[in-house]
Computed example of a mutant assay.
Amino acid sequence: MTASLFADLPLDMPDIVPGRRIKGRVAAVLQAAGSDFVSAPVDGLDLSYDGIANDFHEGTTRRSGSREPWYPRGTEMRNERQVSIVAEDELALAAADMGIDRIEPGWIGANLVLGGIALLSMLPPRSLIFFEGGVTLKVDGQNAPCRLAGGTIAANFPDRDATSLALSFKDAARRRRGLVAWVEKPGRIATGEGVTVMLPEQWIYR
């Protein structure tokens, strides 16, 4: 399919997978309204181009950290992490691997819990999430699990060794910790509304 696009070039061409649409729903909305990333359920989220109003991660820009070793720490950069999205089934799998009964979305700073979308964390970058209420989010990519979120989880299980439990989150939640996204079209998101995810064409560049 793709070789004909570059017939004169001796390249190992990638296969192109067509884009498609899948349906889901908003199972819960949460806001980190305090001084850290921990979030709590709310009735709805008001979003602008800066992200979620009065949320810990609100802002058009942010400061770089350990995820961006190519910049000096604290460099101002585009905030592609305005919204954190998770799925309950993936968190349940991560919890089981950690030997605990649950991971609450708010413990790891989630803003949206989406249901009905298989393998949510594997949605590719550039996927668009359209909400019934009019909001559109663009997926930046997977949200890598870190020890900081693991520490918040561990604090809720005082009978377990806090350090080992916190460290176990990184492996248990790898490719299950959800997605980060930014606001392409602002508005309000409420629990229960439907969503449509538009996956882009995909290919592996070799």
Rank of each mutant, 00 (worst) to 15 (best):
G106K: 03
P105M: 09
L114N: 11
G141Q: 10
P69G: 08
G19I: 00
L30A: 04
A110I: 03
E80W: 09
A96K: 14
Y49V: 09
N143R: 11
Q31K: 15
L47V: 06
E58M: 04
V195L: 04
R73C: 07
R20N: 05
G59F: 07
L5D: 14
R176D: 02
A33I: 01
I204L: 12
D8H: 06
I153H: 04
T61W: 07
Y71T: 14
G99M: 02
Y49I: 12
F6R: 07
R206V: 03
I52K: 06
A92W: 05
A94W: 07
Y49T: 11
R67K: 11
G151F: 01
T60I: 13
P124W: 07
G187T: 01
E58G: 00
I189N: 03
S4K: 07
R102N: 14
D43V: 03
V113T: 15
T60M: 12
A118E: 15
V42L: 06
V197M: 03
D43F: 01
L119R: 13
G192L: 04
A155C: 01
L119S: 13
V135N: 10
G116I: 03
P124R: 11
H57M: 10
V195H: 04
A27T: 14
M13P: 02
F157N: 01
Y205H: 10
W203D: 00
V29Q: 06
P14C: 04
A94P: 08
T60Q: 13
F130I: 13
W182T: 14
F131Q: 08
T136K: 11
Q142A: 15
S48R: 06
E90S: 03
I108N: 04
W70H: 15
L9K: 09
L120C: 07
D46Q: 14
A27K: 15
I22T: 12
G115H: 08
K23S: 14
E58V: 01
P186S: 06
A162I: 00
S64P: 12
E104Y: 13
R177K: 11
F169Y: 15
L123A: 10
V183F: 07
R174C: 11
Q31N: 11
D171W: 12
S121I: 06
T163S: 09
V17L: 04
G109W: 05
L120Q: 09
L47N: 13
E68Y: 02
L148A: 12
K138D: 11
G187W: 02
D101W: 12
A149Y: 03
E193A: 06
S84R: 06
R126K: 14
R160M: 08
L91V: 04
P14N: 03
A181C: 13
S121C: 06
R176A: 00
P158R: 00
G65E: 12
E184L: 14
F56P: 01
V180D: 03
K23C: 05
S121L: 08
R81P: 01
G44A: 10
R126H: 12
A155R: 08
P69S: 10
M1I: 02
A27V: 15
R160V: 01
A172V: 03
E80Q: 13
A94K: 02
G34S: 03
L148Y: 10
E88C: 08
V139R: 14
G74E: 14
